[in-house]
């Protein structure tokens, strides 16, 4: 039994390898993009809208609302990034109800990639918003003494993001596998439900944290 889907390798050529994590991610991406494309292909501008459109609008406007509540003035600018983090993690978690499915977020490589993207995105958004000087100045706040701590916190929170998500998702899959061995039938169903809940919560936490970091980088010192 493998701890991570990275170990299931379909094809390998030197440094390049095609493992289950990448393949499952592609499948998820395909499904999500295709679904979005199908629904948004003919959107109604009228009062009457289709149920799928209604669902997507609810999701997008919900995300928008959440971002706004955290304090970002123009959520439309960041919704692509934050919304994709949330939707990807959430969709990966929801798919655990499919038998034999292993969430790519259960791989530390994936969670690390997500955390790194946040780690990179935060300064990028910050610089875009406040300029290089303005952004770098935020490391000296409230005092230049705080500079090392600010840098440390930047790195550690990225690590924490990656490890948190990985631990939660992997543990869910692991617990399920172990329980299936010791007590089949009803109990694993409950654990799947719990896993779904945990997955959704993690998606939410990851999204919210990313938003908070971006908000801190872009909005701090503005008012």
């Amino acid at each position: 039994m493998s701890l991570t889907t990275d170990d299931i390798i379909f094809w390998e050529h030197g440094f390049f390898k095609l493992n289950a994590t990448i393949v499952i991610t592609w499948v998820l991406m395909l499904v999500m993009v295709t679904g979005a494309r199908l629904i948004t292909r003919n959107l109604s501008r009228d009062v009457h809208i289709s149920r799928w459109q209604n669902m997507l609008e609810a999701i997008v406007s919900g995300i928008n609302q959440q971002i706004k509540e955290i304090g970002i003035q123009k959520p439309e600018k960041y919704i692509s990034f934050i919304g994709t983090i949330f939707l990807f993690i959430a969709f990966a978690a929801i798919c655990t109800i499919i038998p034999g499915y292993e969430p790519p977020t259960g791989s530390l490589s994936t969670t690390a990639a997500l955390a790194i993207s946040v780690f990179l995105a935060v300064p990028l958004f910050g610089i875009e918003e406040k300029g290089v000087r303005g952004y770098l100045k935020s490391y000296l706040e409230p005092n230049f003494i705080m500079l090392p701590f600010n840098i440390i916190s930047e790195i550690t929170r990225t690590l924490a993001l990656a490890i948190r998500l990985f631990g939660n998702m992997m543990s869910g899959a692991m617990i399920l596998s172990i329980l299936l061995v010791i007590s089949p039938f009803i109990f694993p169903v409950l654990m799947i439900l719990l896993g779904l809940l945990v997955g959704m919560v993690q998606a939410y936490i990851f999204g919210i944290l990313a938003t908070v970091f971006i908000a801190a980088a872009t909005q701090a010192g503005r008012h």
Partner: peptide, 19 residues
Amino acid sequence: LIDWFTVIAQLLNFLILVW
């Protein structure tokens, strides 16, 4: 636990998904 090729691949995947 961390496979760096996968990390890079997932990073790219994620960026593509964002776009």
